[in-house]
């Protein structure tokens, strides 16, 4: 196999994945370029989370291969790989027994290569990057609002300066206003850090607004993948058109 060009930082090749005999992905192929903000949209149960977890090795494919920066995931040390991939989930999963500061510095603390002072100063930078006051660093997750928790989750995912950020419906559980703010912020962070983002959502407006590329899935198959403007102007017939109808209706009103 020829060496992968490194601007393709994530590649899924001929992936098959079934749960208890039920096929979720069959011959799934996807390439994500470095620095891209890929939004993945599809109805619930269509396999979005499965694809996301294939990328950080939380789920193994039945067959096919996954390449990260040209290297086969099967040959990589998954622990090290995951420490270099930011991971944000809808439930956030903050550690309730740790302060915000210790939550954010969780991965740098695991890696243990930097000095305490360096980690502390980056923790402060990060909390400001996600739009929170440094005073919050001493609080515990139970003392935060839902939006604040989501922001801390994002800061935690960015703490080890990852090249890749995996986000699984990260703004699904917050109110409309907070979601709008968080969308602005993640867009800004993407531009500022140039990190490659794989962003799962079930909100077509969110997908169109955030993505530099939108991937529309249905029942484990890619229906269309293109820039938001191309998808809007040339939606593929059927599923994509139906999905976009609701979006266009809403954006006109």
């Amino acid at each position: 196999m020829e060496k992968q060009t490194c601007d393709q930082c994530i590649r899924l090749e001929n992936i098959f994945k079934a749960y208890e005999g039920k096929e979720i992905l069959s011959d799934f192929n996807l390439a994500i370029r470095r620095g891209e903000f890929l939004t993945v949209i599809g109805s619930s149960g269509c396999g979005k989370t499965t694809v996301l977890k294939l990328i950080n090795g939380l789920i193994r494919p039945d067959s096919g291969r996954i390449l990260i920066n040209g290297q086969d995931l099967a040959d990589l040390d998954l622990i090290r790989l995951r420490r270099n991939i930011g991971y944000v989930i809808q439930e956030v999963g903050l550690f309730p027994h740790m302060t915000v500061a210790r939550n954010i510095s969780y991965v740098p603390d695991l890696i243990g290569k930097e000095t305490k002072g360096d980690i502390r100063s980056r923790t402060r930078d990060l909390i400001q990057l996600v739009g929170l006051e440094p005073e919050l660093l001493l609080r515990y997750p139970s003392e935060l609002s839902g939006g604040q928790r989501q922001r801390v989750g994002l800061a935690r995912a960015l703490a080890a300066s990852p090249d890749i950020l995996l986000m699984d419906e990260p703004f699904g559980a917050v109110d409309e206003i907070t979601r709008k703010q968080l969308q602005q912020e993640i867009k800004g962070i993407h531009q500022k850090l140039g990190v490659t983002i794989f962003f799962v959502t079930h909100d077509i407006r969110e997908a169109m607004k955030l993505g530099t590329r939108v991937l529309i899935m249905d029942q484990g198959k890619i229906m269309q993948e293109d820039t938001p403007s191309y998808v809007r102007d040339h939606p593929r017939e059927g599923f994509v058109q139906d999905l976009l109808e609701s979006y266009l209706d809403n954006s006109c009103s």
Partner: peptide, 14 residues
């Protein structure tokens, strides 16, 4: 909470 453990695993804890 399973999401707490899921987060810890996904971030590369042994």
């Amino acid at each position: 909470e399973p999401s707490v453990i899921e987060a810890a695993r996904g971030m590369g804890s042994t």
